[in-house]
Design a protein around this nucleic acid. Structure first.
Lengths: 118, 118
DNA sequence: CTGTATCCCTTACGATACTG
DNA sequence: CAGTATCGTAAGGGATACAG
């Protein structure tokens, strides 16, 4: 039943709000794959994202309770981020999306090209 | 392995690009649940979305090859939208996200309240 | 009923430079 | 290295009015 997810109070729509941007799902994904990571490593891992934007994504994820920040009191500032329980539970659905992309990614590109060609 | 999804050519990131906005995943979801629908019905089904924004979402989805538009040559304009094969294949992952929200939605709200309270 | 056209607002994004 | 500040751009969203 649809109501299960789209209750009148709209609370269940949070699933689609939380990741409704370009990078958050990517960050959750790599944290799920690689475990706790430092921002520098994430920047290397993800191509095409600036330090500032990555930080924005991490703050959003932290705000939503999907990511946790660890600060180590060391001379060169050291920090890493890890998934919370809620964040960890999300990597299943996200990997399912990744699997979908592996199958239908080309179809999407083709559809775009076709639409642009008109 | 991570590379499976995040190849160097970044093509696999399409999974996260395609639904990186507020409404597209919602539209795919309800089309998957209810089958082909007319815009009017979708507006009623989804609360808090204007006709214009719904149309924008539908055009994006059509552009990405997830949704197909059917036009019936009738006096009062009649139209409905249905999922393509790629779109249909996406409802599984999306429902998984919905299931996640059913479990962790409250946790997200709590995390936000806690963050706002500081 | 469908879809488009404005207008305005908000937010993400991107590049750069700078502080702790 | 981590994070912030600032600037500018682009796109989505919301409301309304209007056209096919």
């Amino acid at each position: 039943m649809v109501g299960d997810v789209f209750a009148a109070d709209c609370r269940a729509r949070i699933a689609f709000e939380v990741l409704a941007n370009r990078w958050d799902s990517v960050v959750v994904f790599i944290l799920g794959e690689s475990g706790p990571m430092r921002p520098r490593a994430m920047l290397d891992r993800i191509g095409g994202i600036s330090p500032k934007v990555l930080n924005q994504a991490l703050r959003r994820l932290e705000y939503n309770g999907l990511v946790r920040r660890h600060r180590y009191a060391e001379a060169p500032p050291r920090v890493d981020y890890s998934l919370t329980e809620a964040g960890t539970a999300l990597i299943g659905p996200i990997r399912a999306m990744g699997a979908w992309a592996a199958v239908y990614g080309d179809a999407v590109v083709s559809a775009r090209d076709r639409a642009d060609g008109l």
